[in-house]
Amino acid sequence: MKSLEELKAIRERMQGQVGLRSEDSNNTRVVVGMATCGIASGARPVLTTLVDEVQKRKLQNISVTQTGCIGLCQYEPIVEVMEPGKDKITYIKMTPEKAIEVLEQHLIRGQIVEKYTLNAENL
């Protein structure tokens, strides 16, 4: 069985160099809908993919969070991107693959992936 002992070693290694993730208002927020409708349509792998990729790429100014039902259940899984000072972008019918594309194109390079947005859907 893996025990919590290893955490102490990690903690010692990190002493003094803990770069706490800043939760200030300059952060870009990435919000995943995690109500019954989102979960049923595949939000969990979308969420875990985003959390893992943000950590892996050490994107310090992005925080991934979750929310309840956004009210657009038929378009779940939904990912909203909120950049400070910009309009909210709503991505619909997300998958882990599409989420990585949004991360690379939008969150890193600043180019909105129009084809996955709610605006691109013929409502």
């Binding site: 919590l4 290893e6 955490l7 102490k8 990690i10 903690r11 290694r13 990190m14 803990v18 706490l20 993730r21 959390v51 893992d52 950590q55 892996k56 050490k58």
Partner: peptide, 19 residues
Amino acid sequence: EIREAVGGIPFDNEEIAAF
């Protein structure tokens, strides 16, 4: 228990999350 073991390091720290 994890909270106690890691001190103030957030869980979304890459190494803690991997652990």
